[in-house]
């Protein structure tokens, strides 16, 4: 049993992973991952200027249909990127909103929601 599970503790992780969804409040737009990244850089430059623009944000996955995406952000720039996404409110003069649903230093933990765990489930697994 011991070999199956491994506990990883990162005290100062290099990257954080964010699960982000763009909400356009019903408006239609044709996005691809380049345009999405451009939007994020615009948000970053808008709030933090050139310093914000220098943060390297990578798009790991982008879903065209639901506008959901997973970002990789350096941990030092997490607060800046997150706040820039929070305060970004209009795209082409139409209201929009970045929903940040999960943030974690581990990429696999974005696939589950720890709030849904129950004690029985945990016991079963172990």
């Amino acid at each position: 049993m011991e070999g199956e599970f491994e506990r990883i503790v990162l005290k100062s992780p290099q990257y954080h992973y964010m699960m982000v969804q763009l909400d356009l409040f019903g408006a239609k737009a044709n996005f691809d991952s380049d345009l999405f990244k451009n939007l994020i850089m615009k948000a970053l430059k808008g709030l933090h200027g050139d310093v914000g623009g220098s943060i390297s944000v990578d798009i790991i996955r982008f879903e065209k249909k639901s506008l959901k995406s997973i970002l990789r952000v350096p941990s030092i720039g997490l607060v800046k990127v997150w706040s820039a996404l929070t305060l970004y409110s209009s795209h082409n003069d139409k209201p929009c909103h970045f929903k940040v649903s999960k943030v974690s230093p581990h990429l696999p933990s974005l696939s589950v929601n720890s709030r849904d765990f129950t004690s029985e489930l945990l016991l079963e697994k172990v």
Partner: peptide, 16 residues
Amino acid sequence: PTDLRAPYDVANLAIL
């Protein structure tokens, strides 16, 4: 409704 943000987003903003 466009002015509202989720609680954890706001907490992060407060750090700023």
